[in-house]
Amino acid sequence: MTPLLTVENVSKSFGGLKAVSGVSLNVTQGEVCSVIGPNGAGKTTLFNVISGVLRPTEGRILFNGTDLASVSSSRFAAIGIGRTFQNLALFKHGTAVENILTGRHTHLRSSVIDAVLYFGRTRREEIAARKQVEEIIEFLEIEHIRDAIVGTLSYGQQKRVELARALACEPKLLLLDEMVSGMNQEETEDIARFVLDIRDELGITVLMIEHEMRIVMDISDRVHVLNFGRKIAEGTPAEVRRDPAVAEAYLGGNRSDAGAKVSA
């Protein structure tokens, strides 16, 4: 099985700080993969280089066999990489529907002139997009907030709209950066269920950053552990849980509470 995503020896430095340092990992089609690690381990930075927000200082990333270095950053969505952000990045003045529609961007064709006329194919295309958005809304059970301005929604609801917007891109690989942080028990369980449905029903491969060990252990096929920018472990949830280096990283790190969660 060839991997969908191959990260080879990737590093990213900010001035003197090496936020990601020589990380390699594979994500196979159809997997739910997790990236864990203490605060500041470089997880979000790794996502930023995979999603084209930042370019790696060293190393190579292959997606579906394509070297991402040759892909311009606004084309990442088109080739099938979607993501959510750790700190919400919604278009906050718009409604939930408008936000999700924006996710359809690469699947629509209308030019500025088509848009001005809003006629024929353009109108049909918009109607089709609206239909697909409605399906995603139903899938994620957010019918009741579809017309709300997203800035007025609760944190958990906004996270769900962001997930919907990422799904609207129809990605092959979905990167989820701490979806459940700040969510209550019930919302967390909803998200865990959605992630599995996204994989099983939509056939989307998921790579997620999570601090919440329960969800990581419950739903991931593979777990990659980062600490100080380096990958220190990889394996099934059970393997990672037993790995002494992982417990060490969490206990020795600045997030001592997570150590307890790993062994929990």
Partner: peptide
């Protein structure tokens, strides 16, 4: 009004509200 309710207008507003997210949605800034 037509621009605003189309793909193009949504891209404009996305750039205004969050340009990084806009680019991740595939909008060529």
């Amino acid at each position: 009004l037509n621009i605003r309710r189309s793909r193009v207008g949504r891209a404009f507003v996305a750039i205004r509200d969050n340009d990084i997210a806009a680019r991740v949605m595939g909008i060529n800034l």
